[in-house]
Amino acid sequence: MDKKIYKNPIFVSNPITVLVLGICSALAVTVKMGPALVMALSVTVVTGFSNFIVSMIRKTIPNRIRIIVQLVVVAMFVILIDQILKAFAYDISKQLSVYIGLIITNCIIMGRIEAFGLGHKPIPSLIDGLANGFGYGIILVVVAFFRELLGSGTLFGVQIIPLSWYVKNGGFYENNGLFILPPMALILLGVIVWVQRSIQKELQEKK
């Protein structure tokens, strides 16, 4: 099988930094690593399986209600994930709140279905969906890593910066509250794009 299907979405055509898709529901969950990881997993699963299902039924879908059929398939998976999280990972589902529902309108999912699932066989579609979800997840986790480490001094809730460093304990260190605020996620994303496009010069936009 063509390796590009799963290699490209992660590096060359990453859905967030290159195609600029799916930022909506992404950034608000990157304050802490835990929710970001669950969100990344959920999106990967939904993208993969809805791509798979739509690809399976692609020849039967009436053209006029195409978008609605796709939305229904995606929404079904999102509701299933939401129900499962509520039952088995209640704390995390509370932290993700409305953003789980917003996976439905995550442009990556509809984008991949339209661009790939509708025109390819089920198995490649599944892999394409999973790879794109993964490419999206990596960015989420990278952003969350910096925001949690610099903003709260922890990773996955475990203290990383030694407590004795903090000013209140007589040290010199203070958490940077700016990283916790929503705007910092966007600025970090800008920096990630900067780094990526400095390395991969072919992605730079012409003037």
Partner: peptide, 12 residues
């Protein structure tokens, strides 16, 4: 014919 009205309605 996937474009027929009846097909669309039954499908939905």
């Amino acid at each position: 014919d996937t474009n027929k009205n009846s097909y669309t309605i039954i499908y939905a």
